[in-house]
Amino acid sequence: MIPAPFEYVRPTTVEEAVQAVAEGGDDVKIMAGGQSLIPVMRLRLAAPETIVDLGRVAEMRGVREDGDALVIGAMTTHAEVIADPLIAQHARLIAEATETVADRQTRRRGTFGGALAHADPAGDLPSVALALDAEMVVAGPEGRRTVPAREFFVDYLTTALDEGEVLVEIRVPKLAGDWGVRYEKFNRVAQAWSIVAVAAAVRRENGHIAEARIGLTNMGPVPLRAPATEAALAGASASPDAVAAAARSAAEGTSPSSDLNAQADYRQHLAQVLTRRAVATAAGL
C-alpha cells in the first residue's frame, strides 16, 4: 500500500530539526531510519501530516569517545553500530543485540536512536540501553537535556521525549573491568521480533560475579531490569547453580502481555530460562 499524503521536511542540523518539528503542526512525526514508521504508514495505521526526516543531519551520525562514555549519534545505523570499533571495545552488548535486529537490509537503514525513541517493548535495543545505564541526550526548543534510560521509557511506544523534542545522541558508560556480555534472544523465526530477550552484562572478579546488569525485552510495556536477580548475583560464585538460583527471580515484578506468540506466564518462564543462559554465557560458564 501507499502512505497517506504528508508534508516532508529534511533538516540538515539539529537546530533545523527542532525548528522543523516546532513548525510541523500538531501531527508531526520524526523519521529516523523509517524502518518501522514507513510500514506503519503504508498500512495506514499512521498518517502524520508532516514528516521531519533526520536522514541528512550529519552531526547525529557516528560514534565517539567522551571520557568514560561512548557517545552514539542517534542516526547511527544498526549496520554502523555493528561495525564500529569503539562499540566493539566498550559496549559489545550493543553490537551483539543489534546483530539480532531484523535483517541485513533493514539494519542498513534502521538507526540506534530510532529504535530507542520508538520504544517498542519487543525491540531489542531499549533493554540493552537500560542494562548499560545509557543516557539520552535530547534537544528541544528549550535547549538540551539528558534523560537516564530508567526514566526514558515511559509506556508502550511512549518515551520521556516531550512534544517538539528530538533524541540527538546516546551516552553509554564504558564498561570498566572484566565484563562479559550476552544478548539472549528468543523468537520463532529469524526475522521476527523478540518474544522475550535478555541482555546481560556480568563483571567477574576472583571467580565471583562482582556485578550483573540484566535488561529484559518484551516483559512489559517498557524494558525492565531484573533487580532481584542482579542483587542475587552480586557477590555470588560464578557457578551454574548460583546463576540458576539467581535467574529464578528474573521475572519478579514483571507483567508481560499475552499475544499470538506467548501468553504472560510463558513469557515469565522464558525470562528465567533466558536470564540463566545469558548470565551463564556472559560469566563465561
Partner: peptide
C-alpha cells in the same frame, strides 16, 4: 509485501542493500 518482510524489492542504495519499499523516493 507491505511490512518490509519479504525483501523482493531489495536494491542497492549507494552500494548497500536496502528494501526499496521501506525507503521514500525523496530519501
Amino acid at each position: 509485501c507491505d511490512t518490509s518482510n519479504c525483501g523482493a524489492c531489495t536494491v542497492h542504495l549507494d552500494g548497500q542493500a536496502v528494501k526499496s519499499c521501506t525507503v521514500l523516493a525523496v530519501q
